[in-house]
């Protein structure tokens, strides 16, 4: 079987100790929360840390605080199962509960954390392969090589942002609390992500994500739709997160964010702007959905063909909006025949 390489495991009990340990070991170290992404990647030698700083023992990273009215603060170490099952989150931010509940499989959601999901590595089917496979095909620039196999000649890596919760959190305007050697800072989640398959996070090397902070629900409605081959286990190859703030039946504010079509969660700003001040009619939804598919630029490095992923973007945006508008044919598509 594929085996883990040897490494040192550091098990700090406090956030401060964790920050110190991370700083002390420098680039040789990586953080591990649930390990559901990290350990498989280590087996395939995509990651080669010699020290792992474990976050499981940190009480400070656990649990959900707050309310819909004041907003929730979710500890980065909270499991995806706990996020999906949280009644307040399910009520006020259904898109987040849905996205967390659609990640991988039940076993992995019991281990995997929201923080790990926010920080999870970008994916590419030339990269998520064993060491032997990558060596045979020729290493690419994301690990051990210097070319891109998807887009030869490209100076950058196009690995795909494949987190289910990231586009949702961006659409909800979440903020992140990061703690590092020089203290803490809180940033809008959009500022964490960079459109680069390799340097996909703007996190400083010594920083630990401690909290995901959701604003007050305040009339926002949200929905998330995920495209993948099977109903479980699979990463998204398209995620559509939609958040709309309604006043009566008029849209006051809206955000549409696409997952798994770029190296970063990709906001469809023009489409969202076209909603503002309007009523959510089927005609408007069709027009906005077509606009939203614009920024969807998938490449051939995930499951399904990329033209197909692009086509479904339009369908999913329309369905998410219809669900929010309470029109038929929305997210929970009812049986017609």
């Amino acid at each position: 079987m594929m085996r883990l390489p040897p490494f040192t495991y550091v098990a700090p009990r406090t956030l401060a100790d964790a920050v110190t340990a991370l700083a002390e070991h420098g680039p040789a170290a990586m953080l591990v929360a649930g390990g559901t992404d990290l350990y498989p990647n280590m087996k395939r030698r995509q990651f080669e840390p010699t020290v792992l700083v474990g976050l499981r023992g940190l009480r400070e990273l656990q649990g959900v605080r707050g309310s819909g009215r004041d907003g929730f603060t979710i500890g980065a170490g909270t499991t995806l199962s706990a996020v999906a099952a949280h009644p307040g989150i399910a009520r006020e931010f259904p898109a987040l509960a849905t996205a967390a509940g659609l990640v991988s499989s039940p076993q992995l959601r019991n281990m995997g954390t929201l923080g790990g999901n926010v920080c999870v590595d970008t994916r590419c089917n030339y990269y998520n392969q064993s060491y032997e496979w990558r060596r045979a095909i020729g290493f690419c620039m994301k690990k051990d090589g210097d070319v891109c196999l998807v887009a030869p000649g490209s100076p950058r890596c196009w690995a795909v942002s494949s987190s289910d919760t990231a586009p949702v959190l961006v659409s909800l305007d979440a903020r992140l609390r990061l703690v590092g050697r020089d203290g803490e800072r809180t940033i809008p989640i959009g500022a964490l992500y960079r459109d680069d398959g390799i340097q996909y996070l703007a996190r400083r090397p010594d920083e630990i994500l401690t909290d995901i902070v959701l604003p007050a629900a305040d009339g926002w409605k949200s929905a998330y739709l995920k495209l993948r081959r099977r109903g479980s286990f699979d990463f998204p190859v398209l995620g559509v997160a939609v958040a709309v703030k309604l006043e009566g039946d008029v849209v006051r504010n809206a955000r549409i964010v696409l997952g798994a079509v770029a190296s970063t969660p990709r906001p469809a700003e023009k489409a969202a702007a076209a909603l503002v001040g309007q009523r959510l009619t089927p005609e408007l939804i069709a027009r906005v959905a077509a606009l939203a598919a614009g920024p969807s630029k998938p490449l051939d490095n995930t499951d399904f063909t990329h033209p197909y992923r692009k086509k479904v973007t339009r369908v999913f945006v329309a369905r998410a909006l219809r669900a929010i508008a309470g029109l038929g044919g929305g997210a929970a598509v009812e049986e017609v025949a």
């Binding site: 089917n125 998520n128 392969q129 064993s130 496979w133 081959r229 099977r230 109903g231 479980s232 286990f233 699979d234 499951d303």
Partner: peptide, 12 residues
Amino acid sequence: PSMLDYKSLTTL
């Protein structure tokens, strides 16, 4: 060449 990427049915 993995059980994640070679798609076969899940119980769902």
